[in-house]
Nucleic acid binder design. Structure first.
Length: 480
RNA sequence: GGCGCUGUAGCCAAGUGGUAAGGCAGAGGUCUGCAAAACCUCCAUCCACCGGUUCGAAUCCGGUCAGCGCCUCCA
């Protein structure tokens, strides 16, 4: 039984889908106006594990994650240049070229991190009609008003506003630091539709003149469209809790559409103790990370801390994650290798270790997606496995061990994609060449010509090939 | 100023009332021609600090200090 921390109620609750057997999840995606950084990966990886875990348990999951390609203004929700337009001007491209370019770089980086693609990745600009319809519903119900070609949501008309973030809006108003537009009836009101200035490039016709949608409205419109009223779970970064998610709820429910039942918020990745953000330049791009390291190290690193905790990224931490990851994947590789020639039979100790892992792993993930604890269970299993391996366990138990790696390690945590396992194998040509060199080296070793044998080994290491001498002869693999 | 979160070994990180998981690093050992991988042993009398509740607290309550986040765009 899965329990998740629900931001709405501020406690862990049993996760019960509205329709038995089916789960609808909406996760806020990025505004595509720049290269994605490590911080952008935390949410996708967290919710990736969630959907994989639900899927593993036999639930049919529909995972929707949007791409914001319009409506996000530079300074605040009411004024200023559109972020994408500003970037377009800078790069001398059409705004949609910018959106397209960074949408793909986002998905490319997530793919390298073994994050499954959303079932639906709706673009805000492709849902202008839906956003306008929702806006009209709000006007009709008296929760929104038109002013000067723009439409604003009337916060005062919706008493529940502030519920998700636990804010007292009366106090908020007094301390508001945003310059207030005169056309707004209340400083807290936010835009559903904005009139386009003459120089604004992204614009659409509407009942209120040419303009573009406000930032918050897209998520209400698209989540309702693809998941229906009262869908199961809405997720996103902790920074979106207010005002973005608060606004989403208000827009949907004031229009008469019951919204999400559960809310999940993941915490930030810090760098040098500070939040990673495009605006401050304090960040590590996923592309940089990928150029220097196997991206799976980063995925493993992120899953090593709980999603609701802040994670301060350091190179030492990444190094530690790398070494731990290697320990796990080495064991997985060895199991696969042994499976090819192991005798029939079972190994009691190994069977017991697998039972323990299955139990502990499930318990950990069911407790609000406690991935650090699930990984700890994996490590304990690997220690037992390695021990059992010295006793030449039979195929039956090895097959179960293999299954646990592929179903829990890869299937649920997404840690061991075939891509990485194949990378270690190196391919047919490399396999042939290395085996040839190792045969020469073995001959040298037989003749106790260790100078030559060590030279061959050292040169191979320089080229990224690791050699291990075992009782069954030399083994090799490409270092990750 | 308002709201909230965090502080566990050299580093990372679980644990929220019953006497400190796991990983990395480190030390010693087994195996090896030497390595590598793997295994074994060791590595917090103690959970920022001070009070309190309790038979019993890292875990609950109050306070102090430190760091961070949100309140404005942000994963």
């Amino acid at each position: 039984m899965l329990e998740l921390y629900n931001t709405l109620t501020r406690q862990k609750e049993e996760f019960v889908p509205g329709t038995p057997g089916y789960v609808g999840i909406y996760a806020c995606g990025p505004t595509v106006y720049g290269d994605p950084h490590l911080g952008h990966a935390r949410g996708p990886i967290t919710y990736d594990v969630l959907r994989r875990w639900l899927g593993y348990q036999g639930l049919k999951v529909r995972f929707v994650s949007n791409i914001t390609d319009v409506g996000h203004l530079v300074d605040d929700a009411d004024e200023g240049e559109d972020k994408i337009q500003r970037r377009a001007t800078l790069e001398r491209l059409e705004p949609m070229e910018i959106a397209e370019k960074y949408t793909w770089s986002y998905f490319d980086e997530l793919q390298a991190l073994n994050v499954l693609r959303p079932d639906i990745a709706p673009r805000a600009a492709a849902h202008i009609i839906e956003q306008q319809v929702l806006t009209q519903e709000l006007i009709a119900k008296g929760h929104a008003y038109e002013a000067g070609g723009s439409v604003y949501f009337s916060v005062k008309s919706w008493p529940d506003y502030g519920q998700l973030s636990g804010r007292d809006l009366e106090e908020q108003a007094a301390g508001a630091r945003v310059e207030v537009l005169e056309e707004k009836r209340d400083p807290r009101d936010f835009a559903l539709w904005k009139k386009a200035d003459p120089q604004h490039l992204m614009r659409w016709p509407s009942p209120w003149g040419e303009g573009f949608p406000g930032w918050h409205i897209e998520c209400s419109a698209m989540s309702l469209k693809y998941l229906g009223e009262g869908f199961d779970l809405h997720a996103g970064g902790i920074d979106l809790q207010f005002p973005h998610h608060e606004a989403e709820i208000a827009q949907a429910e004031a229009a008469g559409h019951p919204f999400a039942h559960y809310w999940m918020h993941h915490n930030h990745v810090l760098l040098n103790g500070q939040k990673m953000a495009k605006s401050t330049g304090n960040l590590i791009l996923l592309s940089e990370l990928r150029a220097k390291n196997e991206p799976m190290y980063a995925r493993f690193y992120l899953l090593g801390s709980h999603y609701r905790s802040v994670l301060d990224f350091t190179n030492e931490g990444l190094e530690a994650a790398k070494n731990g990851y290697l320990r796990l994947i080495n064991a997985y590789r060895e199991v696969r290798r042994r499976l090819e020639y192991a005798p029939e039979g079972h190994h009691q100790g190994l069977e017991r270790a697998i039972d323990t892992l299955e139990h502990d792993f499930a318990e950990a993930l069911n407790d609000d997606l406690n991935t650090p604890q699930a990984i700890a269970a994996l490590f304990e299993f690997v220690t037992e496995l390695n021990k059992a391996l010295t006793e030449k366990p039979g195929k039956g138990s090895l097959a179960r061990a293999e299954k646990v790696f592929s179903e829990l390690g890869e299937g649920v945590l997404g840690l061991f994609p075939e891509r990485v396992l194949e990378k270690q194998l190196g391919g047919e040509l490399l396999d042939g060449l290395v085996k040839m060199l190792l045969a020469v080296r073995e001959e040298a070793r037989q003749n106790r010509n260790f100078r030559l044998s060590d030279q061959i080994r050292d040169r191979l290491i320089e080229l990224g090939v690791q050699v291990e001498d075992t009782r069954e002869g030399p083994k090799w693999k490409v270092s990750l």
